[in-house]
């Protein structure tokens, strides 16, 4: 638009009014869509933060119960089994897999726990005594770990959403502007091509009109004023057309 410097003001045509109206409408729609996306994400985000808070409290309780059942095991076995457990751990029985959930175009991974069948590292643990307690302890801890995995997916979703919401909210006005620029550049090229063609056509027209007028003048010299006005009108019309084309150029 800086191209307008030193030229006359933008021609207030209906065409450019229409263009402007369309642009405004487009901008409003884009804004409201982004806003809706941001709201959907924020809602989800608040939901998640609340659940994280709850899950963390729950985790505290669950881990306490689990620790207690481990104490029972040490009591029943009558010694420390920690070392034995650490040495016999080989293959993970308890694993997680990740799935994706789509929230307004944002992919949130969620962890899902599953047990690998046929893996049992602790077949011999507690064979002497305390087997029952160990079994119970394993179940308690497995439940605790499930809670932890749930919490982990909430937490991951939280971290990703936090980032995405930040991006959406300041959503890159820049990237939108870039897009507009590219579009306008293409238009500009088109317009200048058309303008060249139109100028050539208009020149030919003016030339034809002049020749015709001269002819008429030669044939009918009594009405010079009327033909002059006609030529003037004709010329004004053509410049008008040119002016409009220039408008396009000036604005975009």
């Amino acid at each position: 638009m800086s191209g307008a410097v030193g030229r006359e003001a933008v021609f207030p045509t209906r065409q450019s009014l229409g263009l402007m109206k369309n642009k405004l409408k487009g901008a409003e729609i884009g804004h409201s869509l982004l806003k809706r996306k941001s709201e959907a994400l924020t809602k989800r985000f608040r939901d998640i933060t609340r659940r994280i808070d709850e899950a963390k409290q729950k985790m505290g309780r669950v881990m306490q119960i689990a620790a207690f059942s481990l104490a029972e095991v040490s009591y029943a076995v009558g010694g420390d089994i920690g070392y034995q457990i650490q040495e016999s751990a080989k293959q993970a029985r308890f694993r997680v897999r990740t799935k994706q959930e789509n929230i307004s175009g944002v992919l949130l991974p969620t962890f899902e726990s599953y047990t690998q069948e046929g893996v049992n590292d602790f077949g011999l643990t507690g064979l002497g005594k305390g087997g029952q307690q160990i079994q119970r302890c394993r179940e308690t801890y497995a439940r605790a770990v499930e809670t932890l995995v749930e919490l982990a997916s909430l937490q991951t979703a939280f971290l990703i959403l936090d980032e995405v919401i930040k991006v959406v909210n300041r959503r890159d006005i820049n990237s939108e502007l870039d897009e507009l620029d590219r579009e306008e550049f293409y238009r500009l090229k088109k317009v200048s091509g058309k303008k060249k063609r139109d100028v050539a056509a208009a020149d030919a027209e003016i030339l034809a009109a002049r020749q015709k007028a001269e002819q008429e003048q030669a044939e009918n010299p009594k009405e010079p004023a009327a033909t002059a006005t006609a030529i003037f009108a004709k010329e004004e019309e053509t410049t008008d057309v040119l002016g409009e084309q220039e408008d396009n150029d000036v604005i975009f």
Binding site: A67, Q86, Y141
Partner: peptide, 8 residues
């Protein structure tokens, strides 16, 4: 405890 749950 966590190893008993089978994460090891």
């Amino acid at each position: 405890g966590l190893l008993l749950a089978g994460i090891g």
